[in-house]
Design a protein around this nucleic acid. Structure first.
Lengths: 204, 204
DNA sequence: ACGTTTCGTCTCCTATAGGAAACTTTTTCC
DNA sequence: GGAAAAAGTTTCCTATAGGAGACGAAACGT
């Protein structure tokens, strides 16, 4: 635990991005150990050579994306886990007392995510606010899915939450849902304005 | 818990996983176009060769993870966008899909808690809204403390969050904090009105 | 139409990723 | 403790990733 340098900021910048070689290697090794696999077993499962895996874990190579992809599948390391990592600033210690507004901001065509904390490695939950852009489309073709649980709270606007196993749910400011995020889900704003949603996500 | 009758979606199952080369290339090209960048510009920004980028987009190579990583940053293609892609089904899992408003209500002299889900056994996180009553007292003597992590988001009002290891933090609507709830903590409303706070708590 | 520029592809070469197997280290079991 | 087995590392070689620049193809202006 570490004191807040200043009420304002004090917390270094940090991005949600893919890890560099060193971090990547550690993560993969950890994930493999976690599953109790040997190099041999893991490599075989991922259809790669065990020497390759060794090198990756020890950061002695610059693996191809494809190789990493296979490892991710094998080790069930998925997106958030693998990619939600502090990028720069050797932020070592845990800093579990962070204030909002420092988070990364990233945008897709439909969503606009703002992370509500500055460092994720020491945290088990991931809080963020999404702005769901108002669209005409009510079409839906791209489920979001990630192992774990998720809590969602509508801050403003009005939207429809589509899920794989339940009927669409219309939600307004103040409404909330809790669901298994392994189930496909996704939102569409149905008001003129964009909808703002607070999510807290928990990896399995 | 209100199990909502499932409805046929007709949409294929899909998992969160890294895209294969072909999809990857398309995504990258789309992202680049989206930003209105030429190969030259994008490649330079990502510090890679433009021929390399061309090959990646056309799936004529098996790029290294590092290269993809740089492109992700440059094109602001991050996790969700890049990795949410079709794959196999992850059928399993609980279907805890509950809507708010069913929760219980409990009141103390300072707080007034409303649980945001109706059933807790199948959930690892506990979401609830607290109304923190406006008081004159700014004094603080008994910390709240419970093993785990906690996320807090101020919905309205203004308050001061006292913690054992950090200096008091003044918070307004829209502010949030994430902290180790094993550390003593507690809130005091400092506005005339009551403050409303959304908490998501995770037991260890 | 013709040069000129600008964007994307292709060619070529070098550095290196990835795998097989040799080698080393660690663990297990007498 | 020592032999055998298992886990991990390093070596070595080949296929190829990645970049520089050549080439091609549109999109300008004159």
């Amino acid at each position: 635990m570490e004191p807040i340098p200043s009420e304002e900021t004090g917390l270094g910048p940090e991005a949600v991005e893919a890890p560099d070689g060193e971090v990547l290697g550690k993560m993969i090794r950890d994930a493999r150990k976690e599953k109790g696999l040997t190099l041999e077993e893991a490599a075989r499962a991922a259809a790669i050579g065990r020497s390759t895996l060794s090198k990756i874990e020890n950061n002695q190579t610059r693996p191809s994306f494809e190789i990493i992809r296979r490892l991710m599948q094998t080790l069930e390391l998925e997106t958030p886990q693998l990619f939600v990592q502090s990028g720069q600033s050797g932020v070592t210690g845990r800093r579990d007392f962070t204030r909002t507004g420092l988070g990364e901001h990233k945008e897709t065509s439909t969503y606009d995510h703002e992370l509500l904390c500055s460092e994720l490695t020491s945290k088990r939950m991931v809080p963020y606010i999404s702005t769901i852009k108002a669209r005409d489309v009510t079409e839906f073709d791209n489920w979001v899915r990630h192992q774990g649980e998720e809590f969602m709270f509508v801050l403003s606007g009005e939207l429809i939450l589509y899920t794989e196993h339940y009927r669409p749910l219309r939600m307004r400011a103040g409404d909330s849902v809790y669901y298994d995020s392994g189930m496909g889900h996704g939102c569409v704003s149905v008001s003129k304005e964009d909808a703002r949603v607070l999510w807290v996500s928990l990896e399995v």
